[in-house]
């Protein structure tokens, strides 16, 4: 299945990408993260070694065990700092 992944703020800059279509068999956000982090140290550091990582699925706050569906919009971002 295909998921659409978005990266925001410092994560977008660290990874050098704002969004991508990703072909995956991951059942959860956690499994998707493991696949992304396997790409190399930059990904591992930005996503998997990052205890402050926030995530959303279809624009709702999510966690590693949140299930994925075909066509899901998955977003990764740092803690928010608006206001």
């Amino acid at each position: 299945m295909i998921v659409n992944i978005l990266y925001f703020a410092s994560l977008r800059e660290q990874l050098g990408t704002a969004n991508e279509q990703f072909n995956t068999d991951a059942a959860t956000v956690g499994e998707l993260l493991d696949q992304l982090c396997a790409r190399g140290p930059r990904w591992q550091q930005a996503l998997c070694d990052n205890s402050h990582l926030q995530m959303a699925v279809d624009q709702t706050v999510a966690h590693r065990d949140t299930p994925l569906r075909d066509g899901a919009e998955v977003a990764f971002f740092p803690p928010v700092t608006g206001g």
Binding site: F8, A9, S10, H52, A56, V61, A75, F77, P78, P79, V80, T81, G82, G83
Partner: peptide, 20 residues
């Protein structure tokens, strides 16, 4: 703490993302 906004500051030392 919940709305997805992020602040980036331009200071004399360059850009930096504001920490939560």
């Amino acid at each position: 703490t919940r709305a997805p906004f992020w602040k980036k500051e331009q200071t004399p030392d360059g850009h930096r993302w504001v920490d939560a």
